[in-house]
Design a binder for these strands. Sequence first.
DNA 1: AATGAAACTACTGCCGG
DNA 2: CCGGCAGTAGTTTCATT
Lengths: 151, 151
Amino acid sequence: MNELDATDRAILRALSRDATRPAADLGRELGLSQPATWRRIRRLREIGALTGRRLDLDAAALGFGVTVFLGVKLASRGRASLEDFERAVCAIREVQTVEHVLGLYDYRLRIVARDLEDFERVLRRRIMTLPGIGPVEANVLLSEERLPGPL
Amino acid sequence: MNELDATDRAILRALSRDATRPAADLGRELGLSQPATWRRIRRLREIGALTGRRLDLDAAALGFGVTVFLGVKLASRGRASLEDFERAVCAIREVQTVEHVLGLYDYRLRIVARDLEDFERVLRRRIMTLPGIGPVEANVLLSEERLPGPL
DNA sequence: AATGAAACTACTGCCGG
DNA sequence: CCGGCAGTAGTTTCATT
């Protein structure tokens, strides 16, 4: 179905670090012409491996100095609980990511705030009032490193 | 220092969803000319708010059907422990993200594997043998939603 | 900040292996 | 089926007003 050779993986690795690199530049590095490189990129999009290109933002530079990961366990386990919770949590502006997970917690949230005082406000007024919310565990982000991954 | 008006935030919001959108297209939506829009984008880069553009990859389409979040507590708390651990964990190919956090855990790892069997291999042979590793908690990713955030 | 020109990049057919 | 060549369309980038 989808067979990726070493060249495809090299393209994904390079573009993962910097998605602005032109196909011609990339092709020189791989011994390919610009159209050949670009066709491979289009093919990676078509098979769904490459779903888009997004910005890499610096939350601190934007005035959001605090990033917190929240592990959330639901109190009520009904079928409607999940959808109610997801709809409500997605409406909170400070929530960047909502991950539905299996394990000790039901959801993992990535939340940003201007500072710890601001985070406490979000926690008390937005998070703790979510429908069906149970035990919560918090981890404050100190530093983060993104790696190339297994490509 | 960094004063972002509503237009800057609108640009970041739009590019966060799709970083390939041309400045001219974006300017029409905001009532700005193409160069004006482009200057704002350059300024956002210069003040460090916009640090780059990265790919949005679909791990499942690349043959990695399992994504697991690992909360890790270190056993030894010495100053060298952190660096040793970080260096070793960053060398594991299956590790996508390493987050140093404050809370119940010391590190949060995002790990991908081909399937659960493959994940068990990574866990036993790579993760559990990390220097200074202590208690570990795992959460398997079911689904994930990225939101615009507080911009 | 807009206009227009220049350079560059993305994309499309066509042909050869 | 995949890659190179050549040409077109579209975007970025910069100079001028």
